[in-house]
Design a protein around this nucleic acid. Sequence first.
DNA 1: GTAAAATTAGACACTATTGTCTAACTCGTC
DNA 2: GACGAGTTAGACAATAGTGTCTAATTTTAC
Lengths: 239, 239
Amino acid sequence: MKNRTMAVSRSSTRKDTGPTQRGQCSKRISILDAAANVFCREGFSGASIDEIAIEACVSRQTIYNHYREKETLFVAVIEDVMERANAMLFSTLSTFPDKPDHLQRDLTDFAIRLTTNCICNQDGKFLRRLVQSEGERYPHLFEGWRQQGPCKISTTLGALFAKLSHKGALRIDDCDLAARQFLALVNADLQMIYLFGGKPTEEELQTAASNAVETFLRAYAPHQQQNAAQPAPVLVAVS
Amino acid sequence: MKNRTMAVSRSSTRKDTGPTQRGQCSKRISILDAAANVFCREGFSGASIDEIAIEACVSRQTIYNHYREKETLFVAVIEDVMERANAMLFSTLSTFPDKPDHLQRDLTDFAIRLTTNCICNQDGKFLRRLVQSEGERYPHLFEGWRQQGPCKISTTLGALFAKLSHKGALRIDDCDLAARQFLALVNADLQMIYLFGGKPTEEELQTAASNAVETFLRAYAPHQQQNAAQPAPVLVAVS
DNA sequence: GTAAAATTAGACACTATTGTCTAACTCGTC
DNA sequence: GACGAGTTAGACAATAGTGTCTAATTTTAC
């Protein structure tokens, strides 16, 4: 019976769930957090309500009071995490650089923000795991997220690349494709770490981002800029 | 009680397990295949021995005769799939193009073979799912595969790129990195499909490979070759 | 054909889990 | 201090799964 060492870091994006009281609300939150952790660790069928109750420091009955049954809780957790993840994703996308100078540095910083805030965090891990293991069982559940999140990301990011392209900072034919490739390159060095549930160090994130941007720019920068060479010192602002 | 419509496609790489008899051996195989399917679908704790027995057309007791308990069976399945996957991986790597002419076409074909034979097949799906969901629970179990498979792939593929680089067909600094980026680019368009357990169509594989190779060559081809432009007709030989 | 080995169905004990119910309890509000 | 909503622990039935055992049956080897 370990004492709940670390809960999901819950950002400020949580919406107040209407007229319910503070006490009740805080219980709901700790249930959702604990459930997210346990479902992530054990999968849907491996997770037991008792375990969640213990981790949430709440009685089992309270869980049944709030969420009629296990599946209801599961769906609530998924939706909670997805909403938060999408919010974080678009908030991070809004920091995409729009000035063509220092492009290499700015793109690298952006890539680091993206991995740090959206992919390497607890929510990212949760989604990778749960979508993969339960996605086929609950297709409708993840569909909304898929359309609002991952599918939108390439078009949104694509549009941002398009802007840079119009300014002459990049030379891109298919901007959506370039966006997908940018994301793929950023994760190239990190895939294996994700797969085993690990968390990259800041240094690994740094290297991954630099490598990705360098190659991306070699493929998509206008000709003379091709060899910007020196890695340029990177200043990261991680919220 | 559906009649076992589709089993894992079992390639010819299976080794005969020593002096055991044919009948026994065929039971073992159908148990392993069925177990792989069920574990893949349901995860370790979601899978029931009874379900596996039914899908393998075998009595439950037979499973317990061969594999003492559920976890033993699970480990056997994992090792079976991993061995097969690694064999297929290196057999596919051995088809990497070594002639510098028609590089774009040859690399594209190679990328298609790689995705078709190693990533999009049933074994690939199984590993993505199970490593992700059970990897932390059984670290030792996957460690051998990780070192022999995914970790080796970047160095092996890296060495192959190095050869092309020495021949002047490519211009690469860090070949291992280039290898990882090649793989990442090849999967850039397919990630979302994998995530939801789907299987890309041949056309999607084709497009993904072309896009990847085009960008890869823009980043790593010697200067004048830069714009090879026309997609070049691709002839695929999928075993 | 016969003997040995493997397989089968079914019963079984045991454990874990879900979801319900109840009676006691806590705590903020009036 | 009393009310009441929310919470709690614990008992509980119902179900599902694991792993064992047995006796009958089938398959295989010789």
